[in-house]
């Protein structure tokens, strides 16, 4: 268009020039956040990929994985640091694009935490992890929504981990014979009310047998099923709905794999692996 002809004549030009400056700054920040989010996502996926080669539960991450993943942790840290000042003050929550990276990182973080400790990382712990990775200045915020959605995705990883272990070792991964009754009841008292009721009954069997991935999956599932995303108009609600059904499928798949192991396991010849290959859902990784 005849830009240069019209420009000088419009009395509104100074105003629009000011707006342009502001909007350009805003778009630059936005671009930086989008790029950081993408890089955090990519590195988190690679971390998860390495972690999926681990076959132990409740033990320190093997050296090969730690070594291999160091570079990705570094990248993530660098990315968080690079945008920390862009998402402060009035600009907090302005760039929701970071949520993609946060969720994927949450998935990697909680998966690694689970492999090491056989527990679900808490929101506070995850949030302060992201904060500490944002450098010494202001922090990047991991929202409760990021946490929840990341946990949903982590279920898919636990499913893959379980199926691979069943296929290679012929049994479901379980923790070591675990914690004395003392520490268990200690946890229970801290957590408060309604859960205590179950414990006296369940404790003896628990002590006898360590928890396995399936019982852990069921426990998370229970918590996620009870979680209520409040506002139906918000995007978060739709995402929870969607991920909820994927999560159920994942738990079901592990249950099916264990079923077929139990039913046919006894007559299983050496080297036989459970028939779960074709239903092994690449879809879960893919969405």
């Amino acid at each position: 268009m005849a830009d240069s002809n019209e420009t000088p004549s419009s009395p509104f030009m100074p105003m629009f020039e000011e707006f342009r400056k502001e909007l350009d700054e805003h778009h630059d920040r936005r671009e930086r956040v989008i790029k950081a989010s993408r890089d955090v996502t990519a590195s988190s996926k690679k971390i998860i990929f390495t972690l999926q080669r681990i076959r132990t539960l409740g033990a320190t991450i093997p050296a090969f994985a730690t070594k291999n993943n160091a570079q990705y942790w570094e990248t993530i840290q660098k990315q968080y640091q690079s945008i920390a000042t862009d998402v402060q003050g009035i600009n907090a929550y302005r760039y929701p694009q970071i949520t993609g990276g946060n969720q994927e990182f949450m998935e990697a973080l909680s998966f690694q935490h689970y492999l090491e400790n056989q527990t679900l990382i808490s929101y506070e712990e995850a949030r302060s992890k992201v904060a500490s990775m944002s450098g010494e200045g202001p922090d990047v915020l991991l929202t409760p929504e990021d946490y929840i959605l990341g946990i949903f995705d982590m279920i898919g990883e636990l499913m893959r981990f379980s199926i691979t272990c069943i296929a290679t070792n012929g049994k479901l991964p379980a923790g070591r014979v675990k914690k004395t009754a003392k520490s268990v009841s200690g946890d229970g008292a801290q957590n408060g009310d309604q859960m205590d009721v179950d414990q006296p009954d369940s404790k003896p069997t628990e002590e006898a047998e360590p928890r396995n991935v399936l019982s852990d999956l069921r426990e998370i599932r229970l918590q996620l099923e009870m979680f209520e995303a409040p506002d139906e108009e918000e995007k978060f609600y739709a995402e929870v709905e969607r991920k909820m059904s994927v999560m159920r499928q994942c738990v079901n798949k592990v249950e099916k794999a264990l079923y077929s192991l139990t039913v046919r396991g006894k007559e299983r010849p050496k080297g036989w692996v459970p028939d779960v290959r074709e239903e092994r859902p690449t879809a879960v990784e893919g969405y």
Binding site: Q118, T119, L120, S122, Y123, P144, Y147, I148, K178, V184, S185, D187, G188, Q190, N191, G192, Q194, M195, D198, Q199, S202, K203, E206, R211, S215, D216, R218, E219, I220, L222, Q223, M226, F227, E228
Partner: peptide
């Protein structure tokens, strides 16, 4: 259902809720 003592600290989800 499964036991509640080990995997998840229910307080986490109560807080999130």
């Amino acid at each position: 259902m499964a036991q509640q003592s080990g995997m998840v600290d229910p307080a986490v989800f109560q807080d999130l809720q």
